[in-house]
Amino acid sequence: MSIQHFRVALIPFFAAFCLPVFAHPETLVKVKDAEDQLGARVGYIELDLNSGKILESFRPEERFPMMSTFKVLLCGAVLSRVDAGQEQLGRRIHYSQNDLVEYSPVTEKHLTDGMTVRELCSAAITMSDNTAANLLLTTIGGPKELTAFLHNMGDHVTRLDRWEPELNEAIPNDERDTTMPAAMATTLRKLLTGELLTLASRQQLIDWMEADKVAGPLLRSALPAGWFIADKSGAGERGSRGIIAALGPDGKPSRIVVIYTTGSQATMDERNRQIAEIGASLIKHW
């Protein structure tokens, strides 16, 4: 067993022997301040990774656009098919120029040779490549099948209805392509620590998230040296922004954090800054 596999296998073990965790309302004060600064709703939840206990939450059962955070769930569904012998990570998928959609920095470079399922998941999570996500959605049967996968996990809230990039439209009061912070946090925890996926697939999923290259201005910008984070960000229309993450000190994750916002007129930089400040408060009061 590799060191990384050992780390993920012992996530519940280490967490069980940690000192009790206590909620700190100071972080919620910052979440509410972010709402004021952005002029928009902000949803927040913080779960203990081992027990699933909610440590703090704000608007945990209000719907927010998922945006690209759905790509972690998508690759979880792909990995479940791999575990069941219905898919192979090494299978190569070929596609054409007509398949390319807006923001496809990886797939646009491989029109000639195609990409493997493993490479597509890596591109979808680490670079948020939209064509990679659409190609992977095709392998599982489309958005409705991802929703069905989530329902089978016990998540009857999260739903995907459309493809990239239309799913980022974020129309107010439109339930399409949305989740709730509580539902997303619980589902992410199941994917990373539950028995739904094999140990190898859980490790692969967290490795992809740990290698995320496009979430630097968010929670990662607030992390002290030595902290662990595996995350996936999302951005959408109407001032929408979000991030889902597993993080913790001492090089291992111990909490799940989900943050979503929508309806702001603020710039992307300002949305990023507010999420980073929430992260800084979380870490300060850990």
Rank of each mutant, 00 (worst) to 15 (best):
T179S: 09
G251Q: 11
D174K: 03
S96G: 13
L137D: 01
H285L: 09
D129Y: 00
V101D: 12
L28V: 11
Q88L: 12
H156T: 12
G141S: 06
E175F: 12
I244T: 07
A222Y: 09
M184L: 07
S128T: 01
D99Y: 07
D174S: 07
P20G: 05
Y44S: 01
E108N: 10
W286V: 02
E61G: 15
R162M: 06
Y103N: 06
D177Q: 01
N173C: 14
T262L: 07
T27S: 07
K30Y: 05
Q265H: 15
T112S: 14
A185C: 07
R220T: 03
A215W: 02
P172F: 09
F17K: 07
D48F: 03
T27L: 08
K190Q: 12
Q203R: 14
G226C: 09
V29N: 15
L146P: 00
G236A: 09
K144E: 15
L49C: 08
N134Q: 05
T69D: 00
R271D: 06
N173I: 09
L137I: 09
G154Y: 05
D174Q: 06
D99T: 09
Q203L: 12
L191Q: 04
G52P: 04
W227R: 00
M184H: 02
V78S: 03
P181H: 01
C75I: 07
Q37T: 12
K284A: 13
D83I: 03
G39Y: 10
F14K: 02
L197M: 09
R220P: 02
L47W: 03
E277G: 10
L247F: 05
Y103A: 06
P165L: 08
A77K: 10
E166H: 11
K32N: 10
G216L: 08
G52E: 07
K53P: 03
E46W: 04
A133Q: 00
W208D: 05
Y44L: 11
T138K: 15
A185G: 14
G154N: 08
T69N: 02
S264T: 12
L191W: 05
V72T: 09
H24E: 12
G154H: 06
Y95E: 01
L19K: 15
V101A: 11
E277S: 10
R92T: 11
P20H: 10
D99L: 09
R159N: 07
K213P: 04
P165Y: 05
S264E: 04
T193Y: 15
L191I: 10
R7G: 11
M209E: 01
T187G: 08
S57W: 11
G279L: 04
L199C: 15
P25V: 11
Q37N: 15
N152H: 15
Q97Y: 15
E61C: 08
S68M: 00
Q4R: 13
L120M: 11
A235L: 06
R41Q: 10
Q86L: 13
V257Q: 01
L136I: 09
L205W: 03
T69S: 06
L28C: 08
S281L: 12
I283P: 02
D83T: 05
R118Q: 13
E270V: 12
D212I: 02
T261A: 09
G43S: 06
A185Y: 00
V31F: 03
S201D: 02
R63P: 07
H151Y: 14
L10R: 05
N50W: 10
K144N: 14
E119G: 10
I256A: 05
I256D: 00
L219H: 03
K71Y: 00
V21D: 05
D33T: 15
C75W: 00
L19R: 08
Q37A: 15
Y103D: 05
I278P: 00
E102G: 09
R255L: 05
A230C: 14
I45L: 12
P143A: 07
R159W: 06
S254Y: 10
E166T: 11
I229D: 01
R118P: 04
L38V: 07
L10T: 14
G154E: 09
A148Y: 13
A148M: 15
A276E: 09
I206Y: 15
K53V: 13
I3A: 07
S254N: 13
F13D: 01
I3H: 12
D174M: 04
T267A: 13
Q265F: 13
L100A: 04
A211N: 14
I256T: 03
A124L: 04
Q265K: 15
K252P: 05
R59G: 04
L38W: 06
N50Y: 13
L282S: 06
S240W: 01
V214C: 06
G226L: 05
Y260R: 00
I256E: 02
E145H: 14
A230W: 03
I11N: 05
A9D: 05
G242M: 02
R63A: 07
A280D: 14
L111W: 09
V106A: 10
D83F: 02
I3V: 07
L89C: 05
R202F: 03
Y44G: 02
S201A: 10
I125H: 03
A266R: 13
I140N: 04
R91S: 07
E175Y: 13
N130T: 03
L38D: 06
A266I: 06
T126L: 08
R7S: 09
F64S: 01
I125L: 12
W227D: 00
M66R: 00
G39Q: 11
L136Y: 00
E87Y: 05
L55I: 14
D161T: 06
E26Q: 10
A222W: 06
V257K: 00
D113L: 08
S122E: 15
K190L: 10
A84D: 11
P105R: 05
A23T: 04
P105M: 06
I259Q: 01
F22H: 15
S128A: 00
V82Y: 07
P60A: 15
G141K: 07
A245E: 00
R189M: 10
L205S: 01
Y103W: 15
N50F: 12
L137A: 06
T131Y: 05
S221P: 09
D207W: 12
L188T: 09
V42A: 06
K284N: 12
V8A: 11
G251V: 07
P249L: 06
L196F: 13
T262C: 10
R118W: 15
P143Q: 06
R162N: 11
E175H: 14
S128L: 00
H156K: 15
I283N: 03
D177E: 02
